[in-house]
Design a binder for these strands. Sequence first.
DNA 1: TGTACATCAGTGAACGCGCGTTCACTGATGTAC
DNA 2: TGTACATCAGTGAACGCGCGTTCACTGATGTAC
Lengths: 214, 214
Amino acid sequence: MEEASTRPPHRSTYRHGDLRRALVDAGTELARDGGPDAVVLREATRRVGVAPNAAYRHFADRQALVDAVCAVAQLRLVISMERGLADLPARRDAAANARAQLRALGVAYLGFAQREPGLFRTAFSVPGGMEYALHPILAGNTGRTAFQLLGRVLDDLVDTGVLTAARRSGAEILAWSAVHGLAVLLIDGPLRGLGPATTAEIERRLIEMVEHGL
Amino acid sequence: MEEASTRPPHRSTYRHGDLRRALVDAGTELARDGGPDAVVLREATRRVGVAPNAAYRHFADRQALVDAVCAVAQLRLVISMERGLADLPARRDAAANARAQLRALGVAYLGFAQREPGLFRTAFSVPGGMEYALHPILAGNTGRTAFQLLGRVLDDLVDTGVLTAARRSGAEILAWSAVHGLAVLLIDGPLRGLGPATTAEIERRLIEMVEHGL
DNA sequence: TGTACATCAGTGAACGCGCGTTCACTGATGTAC
DNA sequence: TGTACATCAGTGAACGCGCGTTCACTGATGTAC
């Protein structure tokens, strides 16, 4: 007869509202410090304050959550690169402008990798191959993926006569490789402990090498 | 009174002989397909046919085993690069020779990464920073580490007038970054599914870019 | 050459951990009448 | 406007797994006498 005292405990967890979003956000935080392996399903639900199995309403399995976080990481990277382009002062000389844009992309890429090493690594624990780099899901504010952003700048370099058409094809991959390699060596590899001054100088020279070498 | 029937079962596992070596070998096999995370202590002991805790006679903990496997991977890489140099036909022109050596190092590096992606990834799950890249433990048959091998070829490029002395310093890192980046994108990243012909063409052009851009 | 003994590389059993995933369920919410 | 009901996003408990690591032990081997 104590029904009054056992009245429903008002579970605020029913109808969370946007649990999927919340889990991706929590997963992203996990990825920030720890990379893709740190995206642990149980920990994400714990952070959101929900039972572990609740995640299965929104994701087929753990990998689906990781994939979603990977897409977020890609998006942050491309937005970072777009900002790098947007912050560039306009120049009269179209050729100099295109060159500056190429450098800005490299700087933004390397900057993101060092600011957010966990997300950077997560962005490249890519589920698919090349077709993924072109997928509209990963397009930033300008409607382009990181790969397409680079492609457009390279097109500008051809249009302004800096790059010959013959050298254009596949040039994305060459520039990308160089910058990506330095990023990886800096954040995970043996170049880890290099002071910021040295790092900056190396970045400058690497981008210079790409500019000359393309 | 059945002592005769309960005579000692002749355990062949006592005094294994070279358990440490055997565990490193097993760990290396695990790393070959699976990378550093696949170096699982229990699995290594299982493969050797020994109790899991036997490993603790030879390694402080799992990480110590992984570090040992990492050193093996580094060694295989450097030997691969030495072979690339050794297989080069001798040339009259010293400058052309130095250039060919630089290219050969790049080709060997990329070849190793693609032939042994697991070991390649393990080699770069490096315990230390730059000082590790110079550690004599990692020197190959010529007594040089991979980094030093590249350094010597760059010195040759300076001596033969291909590279100016001003551009020499830090050039290792630039060349290394470019080649490393392509390797990573090819084996783990979005460039995974690229046919061998395309891959070879990209490799050629990347190395060309480094040669021109340095 | 034979014997006693210390060494220490291996054993076997167990531990606690945290993970991903499955099960049958419950009860707040939105909708149809 | 009020009521019955279906929906489905969440719960709670449990699972099996394999991991790294610790413990007290054992017995083959090498060495000293």
